[in-house]
Protein backbone atom coordinates (compact mmCIF):
# COMPACT_ATOMS: atom_id res chain seq x y z
CA UNK A 1 0.00 0.00 0.00
CA UNK A 2 2.89 2.30 0.84
CA UNK A 3 4.42 1.19 -2.45
CA UNK A 4 1.22 2.07 -4.31
CA UNK A 5 1.29 5.63 -2.96
CA UNK A 6 4.94 5.98 -3.86
CA UNK A 7 4.28 4.68 -7.37
CA UNK A 8 1.45 7.15 -7.87
CA UNK A 9 3.62 9.95 -6.53
CA UNK A 10 6.34 9.12 -9.03
CA UNK A 11 3.77 8.99 -11.83
CA UNK A 12 2.53 12.43 -10.80
CA UNK A 13 6.08 13.77 -10.70
CA UNK A 14 6.56 12.59 -14.28
CA UNK A 15 3.14 13.59 -15.58
CA UNK A 16 3.10 17.11 -14.21
CA UNK A 17 6.18 18.46 -16.10
CA UNK A 18 5.09 16.62 -19.26
CA UNK A 19 1.62 18.17 -19.06
CA UNK A 20 3.20 21.61 -19.06
CA UNK A 21 4.57 21.01 -22.54
CA UNK A 22 1.24 20.16 -24.08
CA UNK A 23 -1.34 22.61 -25.30
CA UNK A 24 -2.44 24.67 -28.24
CA UNK A 25 1.21 25.52 -28.68
CA UNK A 26 3.74 22.84 -27.79
CA UNK A 27 6.61 24.00 -25.71
CA UNK A 28 9.60 21.71 -25.63
CA UNK A 29 13.28 22.34 -25.09
CA UNK A 30 14.14 20.52 -28.29
CA UNK A 31 11.47 22.17 -30.47
CA UNK A 32 11.49 25.61 -32.02
CA UNK A 33 11.34 28.36 -29.39
CA UNK A 34 7.83 29.72 -28.82
CA UNK A 35 7.27 33.42 -28.18
CA UNK A 36 6.17 34.15 -24.58
CA UNK A 37 7.03 30.59 -23.57
CA UNK A 38 7.89 31.63 -20.02
CA UNK A 39 4.62 33.47 -19.57
CA UNK A 40 2.60 30.58 -20.98
CA UNK A 41 4.36 28.15 -18.67
CA UNK A 42 4.44 30.22 -15.51
CA UNK A 43 1.12 32.03 -15.69
CA UNK A 44 -1.10 29.58 -17.54
CA UNK A 45 0.07 26.01 -17.53
CA UNK A 46 1.84 25.70 -14.20
CA UNK A 47 -1.03 26.97 -12.03
CA UNK A 48 -3.47 25.00 -14.16
CA UNK A 49 -1.44 21.81 -13.76
CA UNK A 50 -1.14 22.23 -10.01
CA UNK A 51 -4.81 23.06 -9.76
CA UNK A 52 -5.73 19.92 -11.70
CA UNK A 53 -3.71 17.85 -9.24
CA UNK A 54 -5.25 19.60 -6.23
CA UNK A 55 -8.83 19.29 -7.49
CA UNK A 56 -8.34 15.67 -8.51
CA UNK A 57 -6.68 14.81 -5.19
CA UNK A 58 -9.60 16.34 -3.33
CA UNK A 59 -12.18 14.50 -5.40
CA UNK A 60 -10.34 11.17 -5.18
CA UNK A 61 -9.72 11.38 -1.42
CA UNK A 62 -13.23 12.62 -0.71
CA UNK A 63 -14.67 9.83 -2.85
CA UNK A 64 -12.74 7.21 -0.90
CA UNK A 65 -13.93 8.67 2.41
CA UNK A 66 -17.54 8.92 1.19
CA UNK A 67 -17.63 5.33 0.01
CA UNK A 68 -16.17 4.23 3.33
CA UNK A 69 -18.61 6.31 5.34
CA UNK A 70 -21.69 5.22 3.41
CA UNK A 71 -20.36 1.65 3.13
CA UNK A 72 -21.33 1.83 -0.50
CA UNK A 73 -19.13 1.53 -3.59
CA UNK A 74 -21.56 3.68 -5.58
CA UNK A 75 -21.25 6.71 -3.31
CA UNK A 76 -19.85 9.92 -4.69
CA UNK A 77 -18.81 13.07 -2.83
CA UNK A 78 -21.57 14.94 -4.66
CA UNK A 79 -24.20 12.95 -2.76
CA UNK A 80 -24.34 15.15 0.30
CA UNK A 81 -25.44 18.18 -1.66
CA UNK A 82 -22.26 20.07 -0.83
CA UNK A 83 -21.12 20.30 -4.46
CA UNK A 84 -24.52 21.52 -5.72
CA UNK A 85 -24.59 23.95 -2.79
CA UNK A 86 -21.21 25.35 -3.73
CA UNK A 87 -22.27 25.54 -7.38
CA UNK A 88 -25.39 27.47 -6.39
CA UNK A 89 -23.20 29.94 -4.49
CA UNK A 90 -20.96 30.46 -7.51
CA UNK A 91 -23.98 30.80 -9.80
CA UNK A 92 -25.35 33.50 -7.51
CA UNK A 93 -22.09 35.42 -7.94
CA UNK A 94 -22.45 35.16 -11.73
CA UNK A 95 -26.16 35.97 -11.56
CA UNK A 96 -25.52 39.12 -9.59
CA UNK A 97 -22.74 40.09 -11.97
CA UNK A 98 -20.13 40.10 -9.21
CA UNK A 99 -17.93 37.38 -10.63
CA UNK A 100 -15.47 39.77 -12.21
CA UNK A 101 -14.40 41.05 -8.80
CA UNK A 102 -11.48 38.93 -7.57
CA UNK A 103 -12.26 36.32 -4.91
CA UNK A 104 -16.00 36.93 -5.08
CA UNK A 105 -16.94 33.82 -7.05
CA UNK A 106 -14.88 31.37 -4.95
CA UNK A 107 -16.08 33.10 -1.79
CA UNK A 108 -19.70 32.68 -2.88
CA UNK A 109 -19.03 29.04 -3.73
CA UNK A 110 -17.52 28.42 -0.30
CA UNK A 111 -20.49 30.13 1.34
CA UNK A 112 -22.78 27.87 -0.70
CA UNK A 113 -20.84 24.81 0.44
CA UNK A 114 -20.98 26.03 4.04
CA UNK A 115 -24.73 26.59 3.74
CA UNK A 116 -25.26 23.06 2.45
CA UNK A 117 -23.11 21.69 5.29
CA UNK A 118 -25.04 23.65 7.90
CA UNK A 119 -28.35 22.49 6.48
CA UNK A 120 -27.10 18.91 6.47
CA UNK A 121 -26.02 19.15 10.09
CA UNK A 122 -29.30 20.81 11.06
CA UNK A 123 -31.51 18.18 9.45
CA UNK A 124 -29.60 15.00 10.12
CA UNK A 125 -26.78 15.79 12.51
CA UNK A 126 -28.66 14.97 15.70
CA UNK A 127 -28.67 11.22 15.65
CA UNK A 128 -25.49 10.26 13.84
CA UNK A 129 -27.52 7.80 11.74
CA UNK A 130 -26.32 7.38 8.18
CA UNK A 131 -29.59 6.69 6.31
CA UNK A 132 -31.27 9.95 7.32
CA UNK A 133 -28.04 11.77 6.59
CA UNK A 134 -27.91 10.49 3.02
CA UNK A 135 -31.55 11.36 2.39
CA UNK A 136 -30.98 14.87 3.75
CA UNK A 137 -28.00 15.19 1.42
CA UNK A 138 -30.06 14.14 -1.60
CA UNK A 139 -32.76 16.62 -0.64
CA UNK A 140 -30.21 19.44 -0.35
CA UNK A 141 -28.66 18.45 -3.68
CA UNK A 142 -32.00 18.59 -5.45
CA UNK A 143 -32.95 21.88 -3.77
CA UNK A 144 -29.63 23.48 -4.77
CA UNK A 145 -30.04 22.12 -8.30
CA UNK A 146 -33.53 23.59 -8.55
CA UNK A 147 -32.40 26.97 -7.28
CA UNK A 148 -29.55 26.92 -9.79
CA UNK A 149 -32.02 26.27 -12.60
CA UNK A 150 -34.16 29.10 -11.26
CA UNK A 151 -31.17 31.45 -11.33
CA UNK A 152 -30.47 30.47 -14.93
CA UNK A 153 -34.07 31.03 -16.02
CA UNK A 154 -34.24 34.39 -14.27
CA UNK A 155 -30.80 35.56 -15.32
CA UNK A 156 -30.76 39.23 -16.32
CA UNK A 157 -29.21 38.81 -19.78
CA UNK A 158 -28.16 36.10 -22.23
CA UNK A 159 -24.54 36.77 -21.45
CA UNK A 160 -25.02 35.86 -17.78
CA UNK A 161 -26.96 32.75 -18.79
CA UNK A 162 -24.21 31.52 -21.03
CA UNK A 163 -21.61 32.38 -18.41
CA UNK A 164 -23.47 30.37 -15.78
CA UNK A 165 -24.05 27.39 -18.05
CA UNK A 166 -20.44 27.32 -19.18
CA UNK A 167 -19.17 27.66 -15.64
CA UNK A 168 -21.36 24.80 -14.41
CA UNK A 169 -19.67 22.43 -16.84
CA UNK A 170 -16.48 22.54 -14.85
CA UNK A 171 -13.14 23.45 -16.34
CA UNK A 172 -9.65 24.57 -15.51
CA UNK A 173 -9.30 26.97 -18.42
CA UNK A 174 -7.67 30.31 -17.60
CA UNK A 175 -7.19 29.57 -13.93
CA UNK A 176 -4.55 31.60 -12.15
CA UNK A 177 -2.31 31.25 -9.14
CA UNK A 178 -5.06 32.94 -7.09
CA UNK A 179 -7.39 30.02 -7.70
CA UNK A 180 -4.66 27.65 -6.63
CA UNK A 181 -3.95 29.60 -3.45
CA UNK A 182 -7.64 29.39 -2.54
CA UNK A 183 -8.14 25.74 -3.41
CA UNK A 184 -4.88 24.14 -2.26
CA UNK A 185 -4.88 24.92 1.49
CA UNK A 186 -8.59 24.16 1.90
CA UNK A 187 -8.29 20.90 -0.01
CA UNK A 188 -5.25 19.85 1.96
CA UNK A 189 -6.96 20.69 5.26
CA UNK A 190 -10.01 18.69 4.20
CA UNK A 191 -7.92 15.71 3.17
CA UNK A 192 -6.12 15.74 6.52
CA UNK A 193 -9.48 15.73 8.30
CA UNK A 194 -10.67 12.82 6.17
CA UNK A 195 -7.41 10.96 6.74
CA UNK A 196 -8.00 11.21 10.48
CA UNK A 197 -11.42 9.59 10.09
CA UNK A 198 -9.72 6.54 8.49
CA UNK A 199 -9.79 4.17 11.47
CA UNK A 200 -13.43 5.02 12.18
CA UNK A 201 -14.30 4.31 8.56
CA UNK A 202 -12.51 0.98 8.90
CA UNK A 203 -14.68 0.17 11.89
CA UNK A 204 -17.79 1.07 9.86
CA UNK A 205 -16.88 -1.79 7.53
CA UNK A 206 -18.57 -3.99 10.13
CA UNK A 207 -21.77 -1.94 10.28
CA UNK A 208 -22.91 0.97 12.40
CA UNK A 209 -23.56 -0.95 15.61
CA UNK A 210 -20.28 -2.85 15.48
CA UNK A 211 -18.44 0.40 14.73
CA UNK A 212 -19.94 2.04 17.80
CA UNK A 213 -18.97 -1.01 19.85
CA UNK A 214 -15.40 -0.52 18.58
CA UNK A 215 -15.33 2.96 20.06
CA UNK A 216 -16.50 5.06 17.10
CA UNK A 217 -18.54 8.08 18.15
CA UNK A 218 -21.08 8.21 15.36
CA UNK A 219 -22.07 11.83 15.80
CA UNK A 220 -18.53 13.10 16.02
CA UNK A 221 -17.53 11.07 12.96
CA UNK A 222 -20.41 12.62 11.05
CA UNK A 223 -19.18 16.11 11.92
CA UNK A 224 -15.68 15.32 10.77
CA UNK A 225 -16.94 13.80 7.52
CA UNK A 226 -19.10 16.84 6.79
CA UNK A 227 -16.20 19.16 7.56
CA UNK A 228 -13.67 17.20 5.51
CA UNK A 229 -15.93 16.70 2.48
CA UNK A 230 -17.16 20.29 2.77
CA UNK A 231 -13.64 21.76 2.69
CA UNK A 232 -12.47 19.58 -0.16
CA UNK A 233 -15.56 19.81 -2.36
CA UNK A 234 -16.26 23.46 -1.55
CA UNK A 235 -12.71 24.39 -2.55
CA UNK A 236 -12.86 22.21 -5.65
CA UNK A 237 -16.13 23.65 -6.93
CA UNK A 238 -15.00 27.18 -6.10
CA UNK A 239 -11.93 26.76 -8.31
CA UNK A 240 -13.14 24.54 -11.13
CA UNK A 241 -16.92 24.14 -11.08
CA UNK A 242 -18.57 20.76 -10.87
CA UNK A 243 -16.40 17.88 -11.99
CA UNK A 244 -18.25 14.61 -11.67
CA UNK A 245 -17.36 10.95 -11.55
CA UNK A 246 -13.75 11.36 -10.36
CA UNK A 247 -14.77 10.72 -6.76
CA UNK A 248 -16.71 7.67 -7.86
CA UNK A 249 -14.21 6.20 -10.29
CA UNK A 250 -10.88 6.66 -8.60
CA UNK A 251 -11.49 4.68 -5.39
CA UNK A 252 -12.62 1.76 -7.53
CA UNK A 253 -9.53 1.83 -9.65
CA UNK A 254 -7.33 1.98 -6.57
CA UNK A 255 -9.17 -0.46 -4.28
CA UNK A 256 -7.92 -3.74 -5.82
CA UNK A 257 -4.34 -2.63 -5.14
CA UNK A 258 -4.94 -2.10 -1.41
CA UNK A 259 -6.16 -4.28 1.46
CA UNK A 260 -9.58 -2.69 0.76
CA UNK A 261 -9.90 -0.95 4.11
CA UNK A 262 -11.27 2.58 3.64
CA UNK A 263 -8.33 4.02 5.58
CA UNK A 264 -5.74 2.54 3.24
CA UNK A 265 -7.67 3.94 0.27
CA UNK A 266 -7.73 7.65 1.09
CA UNK A 267 -4.13 8.62 0.29
CA UNK A 268 -3.71 6.54 -2.89
CA UNK A 269 -7.14 7.71 -4.10
CA UNK A 270 -6.09 11.32 -3.61
CA UNK A 271 -2.89 10.74 -5.60
CA UNK A 272 -4.64 8.79 -8.33
CA UNK A 273 -7.39 11.43 -8.52
CA UNK A 274 -4.77 14.11 -9.02
CA UNK A 275 -3.17 12.07 -11.77
CA UNK A 276 -6.48 11.36 -13.52
CA UNK A 277 -7.64 14.98 -13.57
CA UNK A 278 -4.20 16.19 -14.66
CA UNK A 279 -4.10 13.75 -17.57
CA UNK A 280 -7.72 14.40 -18.52
CA UNK A 281 -7.19 18.16 -18.47
CA UNK A 282 -4.07 17.84 -20.59
CA UNK A 283 -5.92 15.69 -23.12
CA UNK A 284 -8.75 18.26 -23.22
CA UNK A 285 -6.17 20.92 -23.99
CA UNK A 286 -4.59 19.17 -26.96
CA UNK A 287 -7.71 17.70 -28.60
CA UNK A 288 -8.12 19.31 -32.00
CA UNK A 289 -11.49 20.99 -31.50
CA UNK A 290 -12.76 24.45 -32.39
CA UNK A 291 -13.15 25.34 -28.72
CA UNK A 292 -11.56 23.43 -25.89
CA UNK A 293 -13.48 20.40 -24.56
CA UNK A 294 -14.70 21.20 -21.04
CA UNK A 295 -12.99 19.05 -18.42
CA UNK A 296 -16.23 18.33 -16.58
CA UNK A 297 -17.83 17.06 -19.78
CA UNK A 298 -14.79 14.99 -20.70
CA UNK A 299 -14.71 13.27 -17.32
CA UNK A 300 -18.46 12.64 -17.41
CA UNK A 301 -18.09 11.10 -20.87
CA UNK A 302 -15.45 8.85 -19.38
CA UNK A 303 -17.33 8.30 -16.14
CA UNK A 304 -20.79 7.34 -17.34
CA UNK A 305 -19.75 4.12 -19.10
CA UNK A 306 -17.49 3.36 -16.17
CA UNK A 307 -20.42 3.71 -13.80
CA UNK A 308 -22.52 1.45 -16.00
CA UNK A 309 -19.79 -1.19 -16.08
CA UNK A 310 -19.52 -0.96 -12.32
CA UNK A 311 -23.26 -1.43 -11.87
CA UNK A 312 -23.24 -4.45 -14.15
CA UNK A 313 -20.34 -5.98 -12.25
CA UNK A 314 -22.00 -5.37 -8.90
CA UNK A 315 -25.18 -6.94 -10.20
CA UNK A 316 -23.26 -9.99 -11.31
CA UNK A 317 -21.58 -10.27 -7.92
CA UNK A 318 -24.89 -9.98 -6.09
CA UNK A 319 -26.63 -12.48 -8.35
Amino acid sequence: MKRLSLLLLVALAIALPLSLLAGRVWIAPWAEPVPHATTILMELRLPRGFLAVVIGAGLGGAGAAMQGYLRNPLADPGLFGIAPGAALGAVMALFLGLAAIPFVLPAFALIGAGGAMALLALIAGRTGGIALFTLAGLMIASLAGTLTSLAISLSPNPFATSEIVTWLMGALTDRSWTDLWIAAPLTLAGLVVLWFTGPSLDALTLGEQAAVSLGVEAKRLQWWIVLGIGLVIGAGVAAAGIIGFVGLMVPHLVRPFTDRRPSSLIVPSALAGGLLVLVADTVCRVLPMASELRLGIALSLLGAPFFLALLLRLRRELA
Partner: peptide
Protein backbone atom coordinates in the same frame (compact mmCIF):
# COMPACT_ATOMS: atom_id res chain seq x y z
CA UNK B 1 -19.62 -6.86 21.04
CA UNK B 2 -20.61 -9.18 18.22
CA UNK B 3 -23.74 -8.04 16.39
CA UNK B 4 -26.17 -10.54 14.97
CA UNK B 5 -25.42 -9.83 11.32
CA UNK B 6 -21.81 -10.30 10.37
CA UNK B 7 -22.19 -7.80 7.57
CA UNK B 8 -18.86 -6.73 6.06
CA UNK B 9 -19.04 -3.82 3.61
CA UNK B 10 -15.72 -4.36 1.83
CA UNK B 11 -14.14 -7.51 0.59
CA UNK B 12 -11.27 -7.49 3.07
CA UNK B 13 -9.23 -10.55 3.98
CA UNK B 14 -9.95 -12.58 7.09
CA UNK B 15 -6.78 -11.35 8.72
CA UNK B 16 -7.66 -7.71 8.03
CA UNK B 17 -11.13 -8.34 9.43
CA UNK B 18 -9.79 -9.87 12.64
CA UNK B 19 -7.30 -7.01 12.98
CA UNK B 20 -10.20 -4.52 13.02
Amino acid sequence: FLPQQADVAWDISVETLVAL
